[in-house]
């Protein structure tokens, strides 16, 4: 029974990871790509690890998988946040059809004030 649940979770997790990777290829700029990379890959990977917990039971690999879920939940959004901020600060523009960029507007204001 728990083997079946584990396999189902594995399959669902892998499909989410697949969609996330597809998004990485299809979406237009780094910020949109990060959206796909953080959301789908976080949940997909967490589901794969949860599947491992169900499949192997509560032993050494199960506990490791649970801890890895916790680490991924903390580190994945933090990493995405750092990449987005770094990209913006080093001057990578948004996709041309983006509607607005309040961050760039505000930072230009800052630069003028400092001069």
């Amino acid at each position: 029974m728990s083997n079946t649940i584990g396999l189902i979770l594995l399959i669902v997790g892998i499909s989410f990871d697949l969609v996330g990777t597809l998004g990485l290829v299809r979406l237009p700029d780094i910020y949109n790509r990060l959206q796909a990379a953080t959301k789908c890959v976080t949940l997909g990977t967490c589901m794969i690890l949860l599947g491992v917990v169900f499949y192997t039971g509560f032993n050494s690999s199960g506990v490791k998988a649970l801890l890895c879920i916790w680490f991924i939940l903390i580190s994945s959004p933090t990493g995405a946040h750092a990449i987005a901020r770094g990209a913006h600060r080093s001057g990578i523009r948004l996709w041309e059809q983006s509607k607005m960029d309040k961050y760039a507007d505000d930072r230009e204001g800052e630069a003028i004030k400092q001069e």
Binding site: F16, V19, G20, L22, G23, R26, L27, P28, D29, Y31, N32, Q35, A36, K39, C40, T42, L43, G44, H88, L94, W95, Q97, S98, K99, M100, D101, K102, Y103, A104, D106
Partner: peptide, 26 residues
């Protein structure tokens, strides 16, 4: 919300017309 987010992004990625309308808000 995380589960909802995944279906949302998956829908946008798989859709042929890619219904996105991005930007940075404050």
């Amino acid at each position: 919300y995380v589960i909802k987010a995944n279906f949302d992004v998956a829908y946008r990625v798989i859709n042929i017309y890619m219904p996105i309308n991005p930007g940075i808000v404050k």
